[in-house]
Design a protein around this nucleic acid. Structure first.
Lengths: 347, 347
DNA sequence: TTGTAAGCGTTATCAT
DNA sequence: ATGATAACGCTTACAA
């Protein structure tokens, strides 16, 4: 259990002793508050620098109830969208002297709940969370005035700020784009069922069909799990249908890769045989032949915004923090050529 | 400064009082050690569950000197390689009850040093770090027996465990592959100068040329910064040379995207006009036309391995921790068609 | 088995 | 301006 060589770890008391003042004078000098003679201050600060004094944040936190750490709970840092978001969060956090502890739930509400408790018991100052399920503990926390901001996925009835993207309109735009180009048998490969973003994207898909008087074919609605492999399978199923679709709307980056991979494997040409539009606009999109048309989410900005909002909340007092506010960012359709666009429409 | 509603936060003392025993009995019951009568234990545990007692980890850490948190310092979570590595780290950490605090340095030794100090002052139990520069503070820490594992980039003279990939042989293999296919004017777009991985990859490049009696042309050696944009520029420079190269070896994923993007923009066909092989084998590699030949690093395993090693170190005692050990993983060349491979070589 | 009390390294109050 | 002292919530040695 022995930690590392304690000779390196100096306490205020050490510094005080070496500079010949009392602990409290040293503490005040180091903390830059209260009154200390210039004389004493100088001595203390000099000694502190000499011995490389670093205040013990654990002890400090026990006293101040602030850790300058924020908890981030997401499904998977590995997904394109979240890595950008997290980078955004990290950047503004860091600027304000906060650190991040990162947790991956893999969409498991059990993990989610456990991490939530751990982070609270570790006294993070606030929480950013992308929820996979209902969570009564979280609700309690929020009610009690704990600073939390919901990321990417809002939840009805949770009285807290949430930063989300307008998934429905993103999906609507994508599918409408397909329809305008003449496609009718359009399938959706959606994310995990019952996840808010999935349901909203599906809603957008349905509304686009409806507005264009295209009857809904339930067989063209497939749920994936946001991961590549499942999307491969699902795409194969779609291809094997008697009336296979002629256009695909895929609900995130990983699944788009999966879909493209099986299209390639089956030697389906894009966009002639099947058109495709993805949610998430990855950097490699323009490299494909044809370049990928996709709905771009402002992931990095969502991260910075979420963190700024959280930081504000942290600096408010208890009750004020219980406000419901929904920040909705607009996604943007980036038109390239994977849907059979005429060249003049190329961007 | 007021935190959230304290009614939710129960202490051992609260639990003790409510169950009619002393603080220490309650503590022992909750901590499951020492001796407590079954009678008392039951009462305490029941009360604890009823009021939702969660031990305050900060207070506990102050006493035990353990935080069950490990610090991870990398250049940028956004780079393909590191997101996989971090996921690996996170998974084994989580399994052992550890959390991660994540720091992005953007290759700035200043940031690196600052994060190092912050993490130590926050009493992380151990450190995983991918170094961008020399760091005397880190050296001191290691000497003092602080648990650290160097990730991806080793450093001469640091007496600690490091988990790295054999960059030289990876590069050697990639360039040799190019040569075998008949290429002679081969350029390298390397990472940031003076970063160990960059230098090793360059070494592999040079050795491959040498072994094949191809004279080294210094103008074909370009340093990038591991980022896409710089790689775009550099690629353009290469194309604008009088004797422009006919093959490219690019030292990481982001730069490969950059290179491919300018090749596309300039309407250069691959592999006929320019062949390309990348370091890092991203999921989208197979989707390109032609599919990308690339050196695959076992990123996720590097993460798990690194974290396992660190955890072991953490559980050793002071002095034992000061051992130098180098775990070198082999990268693997994944041959597809971006170098002009004959089809039977396709994999 | 139980309880008392000290201690972790800060911050902060209150006499001096 | 200074220094003794309590407090944060936990662990744990020791006494009862």
């Amino acid at each position: 259990m022995s930690h590392y060589d304690k000779n390196l770890k100096k306490t205020v008391e050490d510094v005080a002793r070496e500079s010949g003042v009392s602990k409290s004078v040293a503490a005040r000098a180091l903390g830059d508050y209260g009154s200390v003679s210039d004389e004493a201050r100088k001595r203390v600060l000099d000694v502190a620098k000499k011995v490389g004094y670093q205040p013990d944040q654990i002890a400090r936190s026990l006293k101040t109830k602030r850790t300058h750490t924020i908890g981030v709970i997401i499904s998977d840092i590995t997904t394109y969208f979240f890595t950008s978001v997290v980078r955004g969060i990290a950047d503004v956090a860091s600027q304000s002297g906060y650190d991040l502890v990162l947790c991956n739930t893999d969409e498991d509400p059990g993990n989610e709940n456990e991490y939530l408790k751990i982070l609270v018991s570790k006294s993070v100052d606030g929480l950013i969370i992308s929820l996979s399920g209902k969570n009564t503990y979280l609700k309690k926390l929020i009610r009690a005035g704990f600073p939390v901001v919901l990321l990417d996925r809002g939840v009805e009835g949770l009285e807290t700020t949430q930063v989300v993207v307008d998934n429905e309109s993103g999906a609507y735009e994508a599918v409408t784009h397909l329809i305008k180009l003449g496609h009718r048998r359009i399938a959706i490969i959606d994310g995990l069922a019952n996840i808010q973003t999935s349901e909203e994207r599906l809603k957008g898909y349905k509304r686009a069909l409806q507005d264009n008087h295209i009857p809904l074919d339930p067989r063209l609605i497939k749920y994936g799990d946001f991961k590549m492999n499942k999307a491969k399978e699902v795409t194969k199923e779609l291809l094997d249908m008697k009336n296979s679709p002629i256009a695909l709307f895929v609900a995130n980056e990983a699944m788009t890769i999966g879909a493209l991979l099986t299209l390639k494997k089956e030697n389906i040409t894009i966009p002639e045989e099947i058109a495709i539009v993805g949610f998430d606009d990855p950097v490699w999109g323009p490299l494909l032949t044809p370049p990928l048309t996709a709905v771009r989410q402002p992931a990095y900005s969502m991260g910075t915004m979420t963190c700024q909002t959280l930081l504000q909340k942290i600096n408010m007092h208890g009750r004020e923090r219980i406000v419901f506010e929904e920040l909705v960012l607009k996604p943007k359709l980036i038109i390239r050529q994977s849907c059979g666009e005429k060249l003049k429409e190329k961007i």
